[in-house]
Write a protein that binds this DNA or RNA. Structure first.
Lengths: 236, 236
DNA sequence: TTTTTGTTTTTTGAATGCAAAATACAATAT
DNA sequence: ATATTGTATTTTGCATTCAAAAAACAAAAA
């Protein structure tokens, strides 16, 4: 007889009932992922197990488990008997990653048009306004964060957990690039214009249009990142 | 000075130079994946580590590493301190998986139209013919295998490794369903007709059209699997 | 000097061991 | 009898250990 006479539920709002527990290896996955995305651990860098263990203050077992997971995600590469290293993407891989992302976002946009709620749409509009403020103040990190949040919200509005999982995972790999391509400032106005069109399409629930905008938006981002990366390479 | 005077390369054809080595945990991942996809390990089944170790003839360390990887893939679920079990999909998850797959295949089809080679197209046609033979002989496994191969070839023709990786991984999860939905015999003629249209579109390099066909093809498959599953559930 | 071969050191792969948590079970109280 | 608390057993999480492979280094030969 569950729930009978249980008047202790949801004391105030939607506080999740059970305590969140994490296994050490999960914590390590998150931690390492962050270090990779933030560019602390650079692409190609060899990961010495003993060394990393000491740094993180854990033993080899959970670290190795974490590395296997990150390898499955594509952030880390493991060669047998030779250890792990941070994955580095070739130009081709970068092209493909962005191409795939353009497909993912286009599809998510189409679904979002059918399923987005009024609240979510309002949230996106608000984020867009906030993004414009950041732009006016030349606040690049702020701009970037809002931009990311908008794309993320559209993706969530697609209401497809599997699609979302793939999106998030691919996004990590793409973000890992960001810190090695100089926080691309490129075609700022064009990007803002794209976003305005995106919102229009969303409001009109015009899936095909949103889909097209997102597709091209991402392909432009790809080109920007690629040219940044090439410029960087030349500098070295 | 590498390669100097090395006349021992490629004795006959394209034999890969270096010996393929596998780590134990990788072997185990593949092995378990197969067991899950083939339905030997049923959804929801609890995996006892000690037990599995004895069955597979390995120790717990590589097994646990393998389980983490499979969990990242979504074939296995791990709850902290409580062990692993074969993932089972809810109806919603199944809907979403197929919906996502429809998006993936549609996008892959569009790319494939731009990039497929004449040889690949011929291969697909040949597979289609072979599939028809299987149909005529009521060879369901054979039919299914060719069908799978055609979709796989289209996906490969998209020439995008990241997209392909996601496709393959999602396919595993979908295939794991197959053995619990009675090898759906559903709408056989309609499926064949779809395939003929797909080939037409590919030949015409009509990306949009192929994309649409694949999208609907997958959504029909979704409905077939869902109704099969519901029929199965009722039987129990 | 350069290349090759043999040896030492380091690093990784996998098994085992120990502690903590969960489950199963039994005993007591209601 | 049912519910609850306490105890024993099992199972999991993580650290450690041991063996195998790779890398680094040194010695010998060309």
């Amino acid at each position: 007889m569950p729930d009978a006479g249980m008047n202790v539920e949801r004391p105030v709002a939607a506080i999740p009932l059970k305590v969140e527990r994490q296994q050490l290896h999960d914590t390590v996955v998150g931690h390492l992922r962050r270090l990779i995305i933030e560019g602390v651990l650079e692409p190609g860098k060899k990961l010495n197990e003993r060394e990393l263990c000491e740094t993180l203050g854990i033993s080899r077992t959970p670290l190795r488990e974490a590395l296997k997971v990150l390898a499955a995600e594509g952030l880390v590469e493991i060669s047998p008997n030779r250890g792990a290293s941070i994955a580095s993407m070739s130009e081709t891989e970068i092209r493909e990653a962005f191409e795939f992302m353009s497909g993912l976002e286009a599809f998510a946009g189409e679904l979002a048009c059918e399923r987005i709620s009024a609240e979510e749409l309002a949230e996106i509009k608000s984020l867009h306004a906030s993004m414009l403020t950041c732009k006016a103040q030349n606040d690049l990190p702020g701009y970037y964060q809002r931009n990311q949040a908008i794309h993320d919200l559209i993706n969530q509005a697609a209401r497809n957990a599997t699609l979302r999982q793939t999106y998030v995972s691919l996004n990590w790999r793409i973000q890992a690039l960001r810190f090695h391509s100089n926080h691309h400032v490129y075609k700022w106005d064009r990007a803002v214009h794209d976003h305005e069109e995106m919102i229009e399409a969303l409001e009109a629930r015009d899936g095909k249009r949103l889909s097209n905008i997102l597709r091209h938006h991402l392909l432009e981002k790809r080109d920007a990142v690629l040219s940044m990366l090439q410029a960087n390479t030349l500098k070295l």
